[in-house]
Design a protein around this nucleic acid. Sequence first.
DNA 1: TGTGAAATTGACCGAGCGGTCAAGTTGTAC
DNA 2: GTACAACTTGACCGCTCGGTCAATTTCACA
Lengths: 203, 203
Amino acid sequence: MPASSAKSAERRLTARGKERRDHLLSYSIKRFAENGYHPTSVADIVEGVGVGKGVFYWYFPSKEALLLEILGDSLLDLRRTQHAALRDLDDPLARLEHGIRASITWAASHADIMRLVMFSWTEETFSGSMKKGRRINIADTAKHVQDAIDLGLIPTGDPTMLATGIRGVTDEIGRQLAIDGEPATDEVLDSAVRLCLYGLKGS
Amino acid sequence: MPASSAKSAERRLTARGKERRDHLLSYSIKRFAENGYHPTSVADIVEGVGVGKGVFYWYFPSKEALLLEILGDSLLDLRRTQHAALRDLDDPLARLEHGIRASITWAASHADIMRLVMFSWTEETFSGSMKKGRRINIADTAKHVQDAIDLGLIPTGDPTMLATGIRGVTDEIGRQLAIDGEPATDEVLDSAVRLCLYGLKGS
DNA sequence: TGTGAAATTGACCGAGCGGTCAAGTTGTAC
DNA sequence: GTACAACTTGACCGCTCGGTCAATTTCACA
């Protein structure tokens, strides 16, 4: 490895450096989503950005580390979005509803990321990151389900199981919107919310 | 291409030939699921089966065609399983219930295929096959939803939208079971059915 | 037993991969 | 102006990939 490789997290980047790095990141996401991770070579990426190959390895330790960074950043962004959507709500069912809406909306507006997520489930190298994300996401949801049960708003049941079902609805609908390139309309969001909440009440 | 390549669908295969082909197919599925499609080379496959490289290309025109065949076969098998599960039932809701159970059970017991399906959504070359499968699957389900609406068993709603939600529940739960290597227990199946059917009734 | 199709081998090919690095340029702090 | 770190270049490397093919063996059947 070069003396000052991209390994260290605390690398000093100039303004120009940060811009270059962001450009490489966003372009990689786009190409990975369009062409697939493996079929997109590092040479494709640097050519698309218009720089030499060494630039890629100045900012990222490897192609693999780049995808892992994309996945980690995305999980963080989704959680932040969800949290922002429900932080002011007290009612557990209202929190669930706004969480569902936020998840689907986020997925629909991050179609590229959704494709990378689907791919990442299929290879050991990346699926660990995905499992962690799912565990966190389901735990977040299950907490609200448990609160709803405790308050007698819905019948007793296994909160994790129910949260998994809810994630199924939001994931699939989000995935479909992302793949088809359609936005999350109110009609879609309302249907998803009804399906989940009535499902919970009936369980 | 060789004079008698694998291109023709009506190739005459001896009993030994069919066995060899099946062996290559099943071993490829296993390796693709374990290691990912791209990281698994044709050399890996033939080495695992214990034959020369030419044998692979005697039975399959390309690595890509092999995966497409796996995907097509699997869609057929799933549909056959679903159809067998509900062909004797008249009540649309009972048909939906048994379809849901069959889908999840099939996914849980075909974990390898589920991994390949997830991957295939992420590359243009294969996602066409996936979209077709989803369209067919949702149309199958929507038909029963429409029947239930017509009979007044559930409130009016967009059958395709509702069928998409149901597919979301079955897909996600099936996927989770497959990834974790767990079987589809009655408890899981019951929860999924309740979530879907109560969701429909509330919509 | 002879014959042709089916099946098999594995060395070989051109291409492209992820990644390296010596050399050079740019930016900035004193 | 000078010194040093940040940044950039692109030729190059070793390797593996999907795929080919001439030569050979196996087998079903006449």
